[in-house]
């Protein structure tokens, strides 16, 4: 599928600015993510991590600079946005499953409606991805009947069913209990090993060490530091980074 698309980075961000009213949430962000690359973004609360990845799939609109996803610039051209939206999957902190649909229906709705897949085919795909996130037996249940970890895995399967080229994760494990965190991270590690382009906001430093190609540290709407995980964790010279690391790794 890749060959049909223009080559170049999966995501290219240049001089990105974003305001909420008079509040300057993102300041001159530059970031380029190659196809197949795994990026982990961390930083203190309110530093703009969510805002940044939400700009990538247009849940927020930027007001300065440029974002190009898979070679297409995100601007007010509706056609562009529609085409790109389906290539970018997103997993949220609070799962955001559709409570009035079964797990299977959650996974089928977008392929059927957006990609116009026949239902039988969409169902096969959905079951395959539910298998992949290791909950095939929950297909006919409703989200409220699942544990948090199971719900988050459904959310991952739901996004994967659209067969996106890029996956965004916004603190996917921060509301989960420790054993459930492991379930979800396992799925994410598998996904990474299969070559998916991933941009993950997370404070799971073990995960970052294991799969990230680069770790990005944000503070006050800026990218403060950007380094491969080993260098990031061991030899960061930046005062803010070290203070943050001592807080997350401290105990």
């Amino acid at each position: 599928m890749d060959s049909t698309l223009p080559s170049g980075p999966a995501v290219h961000i240049e001089g990105l600015d974003k305001h909420y009213g008079s509040f300057h949430a993102l300041r001159k962000i530059n970031l380029s993510v190659d196809r197949g690359e795994k990026i982990v973004i961390c930083g203190p609360s309110g530093s703009g991590k969510s805002t940044l990845i939400r700009c990538i799939n247009r849940l927020e609109q930027h007001d300065g600079g440029r974002i190009a996803v898979l070679g297409t610039e995100l601007n007010d051209d509706v056609g562009n946005i529609d085409g790109i939206g389906r290539e970018v999957g997103m997993v949220f902190q609070h799962f955001n499953l559709f409570p009035h649909m079964t797990v299977l229906e959650n996974c089928m709705i977008a392929p059927v409606i957006v990609r116009k897949r026949p239902r039988a085919e969409a169902e096969t795909t959905a079951r395959r991805f539910l298998e992949k996130v290791r909950i095939p037996e929950q297909a006919m249940k409703f989200p409220s009947q699942l544990s948090g970890g199971q719900q988050q895995r459904v959310a991952i399967a739901r996004a994967l069913c659209m067969q996106p080229q890029i996956m965004l994760f916004d603190e996917p494990t921060s509301t989960l209990d420790p054993e459930m965190i492991a379930e979800v991270l396992d799925v994410m590690v598998t996904l990474a090993s299969e070559g998916m382009t991933m941009i993950c906001v997370t404070h799971e430093m073990g995960f970052a060490r294991r799969v990230a190609d680069r770790v990005i540290f944000m503070d006050a709407g800026e990218i403060v530091e950007e380094a491969p995980p080993e260098a990031f964790f061991t030899s960061s010279r930046n005062e803010r980074t070290r203070q943050f690391l001592s807080q997350v790794l401290g105990h």
């Binding site: 389906r86 559709f98 009035h100 409606i113």
Partner: peptide
């Protein structure tokens, strides 16, 4: 919840579909 609508948007559903499939039923 705003989250459900954002999830639907992020799956590529059009605003109209988000309304008929998620917002209105809920």
């Amino acid at each position: 919840g705003k989250g459900q609508m954002e999830a639907a948007l992020s799956l590529g559903l059009s605003p109209w579909r988000v309304f008929t499939q998620v917002r209105l039923p809920l």
